[in-house]
Each structure stands twice: as structure tokens, then as C-alpha cells.
Nucleic acid binder design. Sequence first.
DNA 1: CTGAAAGCGCTTACAG
DNA 2: CTGAAAGCGCTTACAG
Lengths: 333, 333
Amino acid sequence: MTTIYDVAQRAGVSPATVSRALSGAKGVSEATRQKVLAAAKELHYSPNYIARSLKKRQTNTIALIISDITNPFFTTLARGVEDKASEHGFNTIFCNTDEDPKVEAAYVELMLRRQVDGLLISSCSDGESLRLLARKDVPVVLVDRRITHSRWDYVIGDSEYGAYALTRHLIEVHGKRRIAIISGPLVLSTSRERIEGYKRALREAGVVLSPEYIRVGAYKEEFGYQAMRELLAGSFSVEAVFAGNNVIAVGVIRAARELGVRVPEDLALVTFDDFDLLSALFPFLTAAKQPAYTIGAIAVEMLLERIRGEKIRERREVVLRPEIIIRKSCGCP
Amino acid sequence: MTTIYDVAQRAGVSPATVSRALSGAKGVSEATRQKVLAAAKELHYSPNYIARSLKKRQTNTIALIISDITNPFFTTLARGVEDKASEHGFNTIFCNTDEDPKVEAAYVELMLRRQVDGLLISSCSDGESLRLLARKDVPVVLVDRRITHSRWDYVIGDSEYGAYALTRHLIEVHGKRRIAIISGPLVLSTSRERIEGYKRALREAGVVLSPEYIRVGAYKEEFGYQAMRELLAGSFSVEAVFAGNNVIAVGVIRAARELGVRVPEDLALVTFDDFDLLSALFPFLTAAKQPAYTIGAIAVEMLLERIRGEKIRERREVVLRPEIIIRKSCGCP
DNA sequence: CTGAAAGCGCTTACAG
DNA sequence: CTGAAAGCGCTTACAG
């Protein structure tokens, strides 16, 4: 491996000068710079960023901790993160927690050891596994899910609004009353806020439902499936379902299909998060589509500001309104 | 930041001993180890992996260079990579090239500077942009796309077989003859091999077509769209289309829809790569589904073997057969 | 079993 | 403008 010393020798200058010339620092004469550049080229010199990172205490790397890159919402968010980060010379390490707080905590610990300059986190807990992070002063921006009692900036979609709009649509346009919600766990802000929005729409319409209509579990396909089966098996005569997110929606559809329940004829369905490609091919699901790419891109910008050490005292809270896309699954033509 | 020196002082031993105790090396007495562990804990010591990487000349990091994480095939492949890599204590840096060789070359260069221990690459060129890599002896495993004249291991799907099976299905089961292919660029092995498979099926069936039925372009939605429009506008009376990959298929469907051409009634469609979620919800597209997750996982294992320096002389060529999933878009009930 | 010392490949005050 | 020197935080022969 050729180092800065080899280049220095070849160019007949000191390593310090090579470093300056290569980094484009000013105090270097043009002649020297050319000599160094030529030597570096001849030797196919490639600087070692690990050494630089150690010295500068900056790695130009950020971590993105999410539940699953395979979830289209996170895929798009991740792309937004990668694009914006690399635009600024940062690379991104991706971590999938599969909604397991233990895995999340382990990844956070590992990323800290790797000296990432900052972290983007969609936490699968209410911050419990992030307690060790709170003690450090490494920059963090929360994405998709906020943690109320933390001081970190966040960029999220407006869950309350999306849920409200979706539920209200079912009530007003389609005259549904018996609307169930199949929600993620209450430790997550998205779940709580979507339930709030759902409740507000019902309240405004004067609909009173048994608590059984609210199913709280996990953002997992299997939970959507189970919950839907239970709802269909019970004597609730559910007319419509609000799936807490796209993964749950998949389970809901599977359950409905198995039981011969047709969507939307027998059961109206609305959901959070869109499936981009699917919707391009088969515009079917009525959904609250969050600006996933933008969430990722904005989060990176905010993180980089913190990394640069810009003095921003207050916690920044960015809440982006989802787009309500009316298609067929709710019963619209 | 607390370092190994702080821990050493606290434990009343030398930094060398701390290093040994923490790394679990053997030559350390149990008593000393406990003292060190206790001191490390009290001080919330977190080892700096950058320093370790510099010394050990190993970063435990690999790079995954693909065209677009947003493409479901690569999303799943990436998940396979991340799972397998982290299982072995490696982290993954993701790079999206958007099929631009310049971007690819820049990423490769950058990853080398970052001292990744190895690279997984789905190259968007025929290796041109990887020329500088060929000179180094950093481990590389090609995924999804092979480069014939290189010495690197690869893990890919069997494009020739998949294309053959798909085309043959159109001919034998549906009696189609006028089958067009909308293919990616010829610099990519996947394109060439899919065209080969397509041609073999036609040849065996004694079908002779004008070269106009073969459209070569890019793995881009826009190209699928344009090519489909041209095919439909011409006097080819195309009965069926083989879309070179999933992205092209999306463009094909958009074009057909715009022109009021129904799939499969007016036009049969088969494609490479499945859309996992979409297919779970709407089983419609007949496709050659490549084992994307497995491709990623196997590629990592092979890469790690190279990184460990295991002496494997020959180039390893893993070709995984895609599953032919017959659904409705080809005309099957 | 333990420690002193060198070194991984850079950057950057400090002098001149 | 240029160089000698120190140091980033580890690991690991080499001694003892």
C-alpha cells in the first residue's frame, strides 16, 4: 500500500506538504502542488480515510437505523437518506432491527464504536434502548417515529391528520360506521397518533364503538392477518378497516381473501403508507402516502447541521402532511 | 472521550493489558481481566473501532454497489447482504449508481479509500469502470451481473434459463408467435443472456421474427414505456412481450394502459424479477423470480471467505435458477 | 502474565 | 511556503 510517505519521497517534499497539497489547503506553492499531484498519480496513491478519520475525529459516515429496508416506506426513505448524504460526502450504514429493541440497542452501540458522525433512527421502542445514546452528545435525528421525552430533532409524517382524513372519508363518503383499526404497538408515536386521528373522526361523526374495534399489536403482516381474522370471526359486522401501516394491510388482505371477504364490496379498506410500484401498476389501495423520500432527505440535512456544530438551541420538529390518495379499496369507483 | 488509557489508569494496569483483557485474548489472568472489565464499565468505555481498524488494517465493513435500492430485486438482495454480513460482525455501506458508470467508478474509488474489506458489485458497465479495481487485490464478488473477462467470483440468477422458460411458456401454452422482447443494454450479462434464452425458445419452435422485435435499451421505466409505444404503433401486431426486468415491465404496463391495450386480453406479458409485496396482494404478473435474498447472502459468504484469505484458486461461478411463477398476465386463468 | 515501545497513515499546530 | 514532531486510539511483537 502506498502512503503519503511514498508520495513525499517521490515528490521530494515532506509528508506534511503532501497532505496539504492533496487536501487543497492554501499555504502551498503551485509548483509544489503540481509536483505532489504528479507523484501521487504516478504511484496510484489512494488516501487512507481511516487514518484521516482517526486524526480528524470525523468519519463522514452516518447510520440509518430502521426496522426493515424491505418495507417500501423505509426503502424510499433510505434512498432519500443515501442521496442527500452522499451529496455532502457522507456515506450511510444501514441497520435493520426488525422491530426488536435489543437489536436496536446493539446496533446503536456498534455504530457508536464505529464513530459515526450522527445517527438517523426510527426507533422501535419508546426510547428505552436509546438511553445510552441520550447520555452521549452525538447528533441524532429521529425519523418517522418521535420520542416525546427526548431532546432530539425529528422528521415525521402527520399520522394524526392522515388517520383522521382516511377515517373521515370512510364515514362521510361511504357512510361507514363500524370501522375497525388494526394498529401497531402503543409505544410508537405513529400508532398512538393514528389511533387519535381515527378516534377524532369517529367522535366528530358521533359514532360510538366498542373498544373491540381497536386492535393493537405490531407492525407485522402476521398481526394484521390475525387481527383481521378475529374481527371477521366475531360478531362485530365490521364494515371497514383502517390498517395501521402497509405491512398490516398485507395481512388484512390475506385474511380477507382466505375468508372469501371481498374488498371493497364486503369490506372497505384504507391504509397508511403507499406501495409505490404496486400503485403504479394497480391503483387500488386508498392510502395516506407519506413523503418518505423527503423525510429522509430533510432528516439528513438537519443531522448534518448538527454535525457541523451549528448552534441550534431548540428541538426542531418537522411534521409532513401525508397525501390522501383515494383509489378503489375504500369503495370509490 | 474515554480511551484505553483511562481504563488502564483506573484499573492500575497498562494499556496493553486493557487491550488484551477487552479483546478476550488469552494471556491475561482472570483477576486482572475482572479489574479491567470493572474499570471499563465504570467509565462507560466504548472502544474506538477506527483506531483498531487503522492498526489491524481491517475495517469489518463491506460495500454494496447496486443501481438502485428502490428496485425491489435489489432491496431484497440488500437485505440478504445486510443480514449475512452483520451475522459475521460486518457492516454494509450501500451505494446507488442509478446505472451510471461514472457514479459507479466514483463509489468504488471512495470505498477503497474508506478501506472496505471487500466489495459486492452489480456493475452497470461491462467492467470499464472497474478497471482500477482489477489492479488492486481487494476481494470482490459480483452479484446479479457477471463480467466475463474478469477473475472475480459471481453469484447470479440464470437469465438464459428464465428467459427461455418464460418465452417457451408463451409459445407452447398460449400459442403466441409474435413475441417481442424489451431488453436492457447489451453491455450487461443479464440482457445478453435473456435475449439468448428468448431466441432459443423461438428457434426451437421454428419462429422467425424481424429483428425489430428485439428492443435493446436500458433497465429504465421510461425505456420500457417508449419501446412498448413504438411496438404498439408499428405494424408488428405484437401478441406478447417479454419485459427484460421489473422496471421495464412497469413502463410496458403504463404504455399499454395509455393506449387502451389490455393485458393479457390484447397483449400477453411476462417479466423478469417479481414484485414481492405486489404479488402477495395482487397475483397478476407471470415472472421469473430470482432468489434475490439468497444471491445476496451467498455473495457475502463468498466474499468473507476471500477476506479471510482462504486460498481458493479458481473463480467461483454460482448461477441460481429462477422460479417461474405463472400467474395471469401471460393469459393463464 | 504483564509492560514499554513501536507503529498503523494521516493532520496540524508550531517554528522557521 | 515548508518541515519536524506530536498525536489521533488502538494492537502486537518483543522482553522479562
